[in-house]
Design a binder for these strands. Structure first.
Lengths: 232, 232
DNA sequence: ACGGGCGTGTCATCAAAGTGTCACGGCGGG
DNA sequence: CCCGCCGTGACACTTTGATGACACGCCCGT
């Protein structure tokens, strides 16, 4: 999962803090929901399981640490990473937090950058990385490990976008895609671009494949979009 | 991980013992932190997860064995190897310690040399043995025993971080890594640093390889991260 | 205890590479 | 033949990486 699209739940009784965090994280591309107390938090969680929870230590009613314990007890929620937000940190707090099963701490006041860094670190630690290895298509080999594109041993150079475009095509050979579909799959669903931009990157991809004489692999489907040659 | 750069936490209520151990291990190139009781130990652990813990058996308050149990219960800390320091050892103690999940015993009084040997043994056993002695890549030889980097016989000088970075690269040649992944693997998952910091250390590493003309071994993967040339 | 290196992380700046948009022109199908 | 669709070069703007500078912290020897 890309951390930049993570679903984050912020539990804090002070709405000012929630807003601040929300603003900072939205800026970093994350999806943020807020909850003012434990009850609301549990309701949000059952609505939609977040990828990570930021929780205030001190809250009226059910405290952060108590909520953490409850979440840890339930199998459905026990694997959600939790970062504790706290104004003061005494030794006792740290001990209690570790025992309750939080994944990290962050002490108020904190900078948005630090918060984002911590979130990313925790997500990285908890979510397993996906690796695919190699994708082959005729004379072409796309190696996701070394992040290189090889044609008969020679390396082909292309920009990041062309690389992603090619990777998508090679894992979906023979299928025709409209420009809109390509924008969704290669650029992501929150990108709003001109459809004709796809044309330009198709051209750049073809130009990159040219030296190996493989530019014919990328075919135009007139009136619809593009397709990668099926090499099976 | 090279045992000689291990992060060690010493938990003992007698400061004289802590100081002695600390002195001996620092001498062996390890990073040592001390804690006087269980509470302080947990606090240090949450600050920075150590590679190994040396723990006194008898301590006022929470005993070593009790602390071990707590650490074993938490997923975050359960994989930290623990060596128990103890004055007396009866058969019962051995059983109790084994059940609590310690990795080794050492009976006071012990010599620094013995202590270091045991630590290395445990680390070797628990860490995915990358203590190969020498890693080679083209003209480069990285000797983990003498902790030196040789290029055609000449020694190259670099800082500890650059050394670890190079060691990681040389054991994973040809693979492209993002800055985030490099931070995880070279700096550790508890490090919260700017991604750009990686750039700087890459530059320092290249500069260190420059005199041998091997700076080209470190390649930039634009829009993604870096890669070490595959020399196979 | 006290400077002085050394190593390390962060920042500002510059240059290079990549990206999105547009306009023009050619080509193909109805 | 005409319209619409696509290929292509140009270009302004953004992103990204290399690099030098700098400040801080740690350890060492005096």
């Amino acid at each position: 999962m890309n951390a930049n699209e993570a679903q984050v739940l912020v539990v804090d009784d002070e709405s000012a803090i929630r807003d601040m965090i929300q603003f900072a994280l939205r800026r970093a591309g994350m999806n943020v929901e807020g909850a003012a107390d434990a009850k609301e938090a549990l309701s949000r969680i059952s609505d939609r399981k977040p990828d990570i929870i930021l929780m205030d230590w001190m809250m009226p009613g059910v405290s952060g640490i108590e909520l953490t314990r409850r979440l840890r007890k339930e199998p459905v929620t026990s694997d959600i990473p939790i970062i504790m937000l706290t104004a003061k940190v005494t030794e006792d707090d740290k001990v209690a937090g570790l025992e309750a099963g939080t994944d990290d701490y962050i002490i108020k006041p904190f900078s948005p950058r630090e918060l984002i860094a911590r979130i990313n670190a925790v997500l990285r630690r908890t979510s397993p990385a996906d690796e695919e290895g190699q994708i082959k298509a005729g004379e072409l080999v796309l190696d996701t490990i070394s992040r290189r594109v090889l044609a008969k041993g020679d390396e082909l150079h292309m920009g990041p976008t062309e690389y992603r475009l090619l990777a998508f095509f090679m894992s979906n050979q023979g299928r025709a895609y409209s420009r809109t579909q390509l924008l969704d799959h290669v650029w992501g669903t929150n990108a709003y671009l001109e459809e004709r931009t796809v044309d330009v990157h198709i051209r750049r991809l073809r130009k990159a494949l040219q030296p190996a004489g493989l530019d014919g692999y990328v075919q135009t489907v007139r009136g619809h979009g593009y397709r990668f040659l099926n090499t099976d």
